[in-house]
Design a protein around this nucleic acid. Structure first.
Lengths: 212, 212
DNA sequence: TAGATTGTTAATCGATTAACAATC
DNA sequence: TAGATTGTTAATCGATTAACAATC
C-alpha cells in the first residue's frame, strides 16, 4: 500500500461503493473484473476507478484486470473494515431503532455494542438482543463496551451535549443523524448524515424540469 | 431569481443546510444575519455562502446583511419547499418505518401520502396514521395519491424492479435507501443514500490516525 | 506475438478562496 | 460620512478526464 501524499475525500467515499459492488460481483461467481465492467455496473468511468485504486497501490494486473477476491480484501483493509468496530447508538427513537436493526452494519464489520436512551420506558428493553442503557450511564457504558464510534440519533436540541459527552468518554468517531452542525475537536472523526439534503435536492430539480 | 447558466451541485446541496440554520436563527429572534455569522454557525466560509446565494439572485443588502425571514422564503422557493410534495414509502421495514415517522419531512414540505409493502402481515396496518397498502397495488396507489416522489426502502434484490414500477407509474423522483446502484431514465431525479459510506469513512480515518 | 487493460502523466474542468469595487 | 458587508471578478486549488506507455 502506498503511503504517499493525500487521497482525496471523493476517492475515499467511492471505496465503499466499489467494495459493495465487488462483493456482489463475487457472489455471482466472477473471479476477475476489468475497470471497464466494474465502472459499467457502478456508473462511474473506468479511469476514475483505476485512478482511485491506484492511489493505494497496484491492485490490478495489466492486460487482465482485477482479481475480485484480492481487491475486496485490499479495499476492506484500506477502509479498516477487516477489523471490528464497536458502535453505540445514542437515542433509541425511530431512527436509532432502525439502525440498531440494520443488518448491513454487521456485514461490513460494525457491531452495535450498546444502546442508550434517556426515556425510562425504553431503558432495560432489548432491541436486536441489546439492552437499552440509561443515558446517565453513558460514560461507563462507553468504557465497559469499548465503544469506538458513537451514533447520535437524539433530538437536535441535545445533540451537541451528547457529542461532547461521547468525546469526553473516549469515543473517536461520531456518526451524527441529528439535524444540527456539531462542533467537535479536530481529532474526532465526524460524519453527519443530513437526510433533508437528499430530499431537498430532488425537490429542487423537480421544480425546474417539466413543471406540471 | 437569476436564470442564467448552471448552479453547481455542491451549491444546491448546501442550501438545505442554510435553510435549516436560518430557521434556527429565526427561532432565536434574529432578523438580520451576515454571511460571516451564518458561516460561523454552519462551519462554511462567508465567501462560500455569498457565492452560493448570489448564484440565485441578490438576496442581501450591502453593508447590512441578509434579512432572515426573506432569505428563508427565497431559499425555500429555490428548493421547491414552498409547495407540497407527496411521497410514498415502498417497503415498511425498519428504515421505511422510521422514515414514515420522521417529523422533519413534514416540516420542510413533504407529506408521506402512502406506504406500501409486500408482507401481508403489514398490509392494512397503520403507521403514523397511514394505512400500509399492498405492493401489488403500487401503480394504483401512486395515481390515487398523486405521488411525486418514491422512497425505496425495500431489500436490495427487489430495488431495481421497484424503481422501474415507480417510474412506469409516473413518479418523477426517487429517494433510494437500498444498497444498490439503480438505473433509471435520465428525466427521473434519483438520489441514493448510502449509509455505508459515512460509517466506512469514519472507519477509514480512524484506521489511520493514532492507531491504538 | 497480438490484444487487452492497467497505472500514470498531462490536460481539462469545476469548485473554492481571495480580493475588492459597489453600496447600504 | 465612515464602517460594514454584499456581489462579482480573478486566482488558486482540487478533482476528473484523456491519452498513452508499460506490461501481462
Amino acid at each position: 500500500m502506498k503511503n504517499n501524499a493525500e487521497v482525496s475525500k471523493a476517492t475515499v467515499d467511492r471505496l465503499p461503493l466499489y467494495f459493495r459492488t465487488l462483493r456482489q460481483v463475487q457472489s455471482e461467481g466472477i473471479d476477475i473484473i476489468s475497470s471497464e465492467e466494474l465502472g459499467r455496473r457502478i456508473g462511474v468511468t473506468p479511469e476514475q476507478i483505476r485512478k482511485d485504486l491506484a492511489s493505494f497501490g497496484e491492485f490490478g494486473k495489466k492486460g487482465v484486470g482485477y482479481f475480485v477476491r484480492e481487491l475486496i480484501r485490499n479495499i476492506s483493509e484500506i477502509l479498516g473494515l477487516h477489523r471490528n468496530w464497536n458502535i453505540a447508538i445514542i437515542g433509541v427513537g425511530h431512527l436509532g431503532w432502525a439502525l440498531a436493526n440494520y443488518r448491513s452494519l454487521n456485514s461490513i464489520g460494525f457491531t452495535v455494542a450498546a444502546l442508550l436512551d434517556a426515556d425510562s420506558a425504553k431503558i432495560g428493553q432489548r432491541v436486536n438482543g441489546i439492552e437499552v442503557s440509561d443515558m446517565s450511564d453513558l460514560e461507563q457504558v462507553i468504557k465497559d463496551q469499548d465503544i469506538h464510534i458513537g451514533v447520535i440519533t437524539v433530538p437536535a436540541n441535545v445533540a451537541q451535549q451528547t457529542a461532547e459527552r461521547l468525546v469526553a468518554a473516549g469515543v473517536r468517531g461520531i456518526w451524527n443523524f441529528a439535524p444540527v452542525v456539531l462542533k467537535v475537536p479536530d481529532d474526532i472523526r465526524l460524519v453527519s448524515e443530513d437526510l433533508s439534503v437528499g430530499l431537498s435536492s430532488i425537490s429542487y430539480y423537480l421544480s425546474r424540469v417539466a413543471r406540471e
